[in-house]
Design a binder for these strands. Structure first.
Lengths: 237, 237
DNA sequence: CGTATCCTTGAACCATGTCAAGCAATGTGG
DNA sequence: CCACATTGCTTGACATGGTTCAAGGATACG
């Protein structure tokens, strides 16, 4: 399940996701420092990187694949917080808050992930204030997003939230040449993002399909009418 | 509504909320720097400090009083994010994410608030990495809290959330000698925190009262049976 | 090829929202 | 200080969105 990949193809200086990440404010020397200290792993689908409540000793930079971050709630029910993809950093939250992991991380699609020890992160924050500000910017932005989502959970219906999440997934993962969203989730996963029952997701996706707003092929969702989705998600339809 | 208070009683070096705040990692020189650059204001109830969408040019440190932070949602409905009290910092999120204010701030109880220009905050982050880490810690912690609340919104019933929020308010604001929570909110405010209708809050508070879990005197809520509240909020009752 | 997981549909139930109406408390201006 | 206006509180009746349960079919996987 967990396998160190050969270092060659993973030099941070040549990493094509580098400019997507918060590391773009680092000097070459600092990048090399990370490169020297990090460890790369390849994980198969369903591997657990860490569990809620674990102590996190560093953070993970996703090179490719998709990682699902989720919290376990009442009666063991899973609640999905977000998905991390190429260029995303995970675990930094617990690292910098000094708290135990507040979520579990599980591989959704086979992934290559670099582990950066916490000490390295702290050293970089101390010696490069631009980097510190960059992480701060990231955390503050995620906080905005989280609070907006709380409001949406509070005020929107399940249908509105489903339309919203389809649009968010589109923005985060993009669509292919046939307008299919480039992430395949089970109905249950979708339900666990927006906080509803699997059956409700199924019925509502069916409804969207009947209205020619989306098309469905197994787990692949094709967006036909983004405008309508937008209207639905904003209650203006 | 907005009035500069005399500076004497507000010297940061003598501020009794100082050790509650993230500023406790600063040197005396740095505290004096803030003291020199800040401006203190006294605000009456219902004053708006800033509105969602405003550009924020600094952040506010609450000296006393209570500030309500809320987002405006669909059809103008208010959703309360949190309350800031003595020692809390507000506006830092938008400042550091470089985005427009993602919420409005309104005075709930007459407040004294110090405005610290953004430039000062940025300078301090740059020159004192312990301070940077402290803000980062704060932001990451708030992110944890926000994500937990999203899960709760997704998985808990209105009754469970109401029990939960009463306990949170107790922890945040404390209780007086008669076990009354030291913050007075309208039923509508309570509804706007947990995302429900005012009528539901009224009915559920009545239910809690009938079960001798709480007592109610106008807007003041007295906690009689914290254990039961805990059980309810965790679905174990 | 059999087992596990996922998907789908129908039916029944219920928690919660909405609407309406009246009352209480609070605030404001003359 | 009173009268009026506004805001907040309460209750009942009703509508409905959404959950839950059950059962069967489809699909993926070892």
């Amino acid at each position: 399940m967990k396998r160190k990949s050969n270092a060659k193809s993973n030099a941070c200086t040549e990493c094509n996701v580098n400019n997507l990440t918060i590391f773009n404010k680092l000097t070459i020397d600092e990048i090399n420092y990370i490169n020297f200290e990090k460890t790369c792993y390849q994980y198969k689908k369903n591997t657990i990187l860490y569990n809620e409540g674990n102590r996190i000793s560093g953070c993970y930079c996703v090179h490719d694949g998709i990682i699902k971050l989720y919290k376990t709630g009442i009666e063991g029910r899973e609640h999905i917080i977000r998905f991390a993809k190429a260029g995303d950093l995970i675990g930094y939250r617990s690292l910098f808050s000094g708290e135990l992991a507040c979520h579990s991380a599980k591989v959704l699609e086979d992934a290559t992930v670099c582990f950066i020890p916490g000490e390295v992160m702290f050293n970089l924050v101390e010696q490069n204030s631009k980097f510190a500000l960059e992480i701060l910017r990231l955390a503050c932005h995620e906080l905005d997003v989280a609070n907006s989502f709380i409001r949406d959970m509070a005020q929107k219906t399940v249908k509105e939230r489903l339309a919203e999440i389809l649009l968010i997934l589109k923005d985060d993962f993009g669509i292919d040449e046939n307008n299919y969203i480039k992430i395949n989730l089970t109905r249950e996963d979708l339900a666990n993002i927006i906080g509803t029952a699997t059956e409700s997701v199924i019925r509502l996706l069916g409804e969207f399909k009947d209205q020619n707003i989306i098309d469905i092929e197994g787990r692949k969702i094709k967006l036909l009418d983004i405008n309508s989705l937008q209207k639905i998600s904003e209650k203006s339809a």
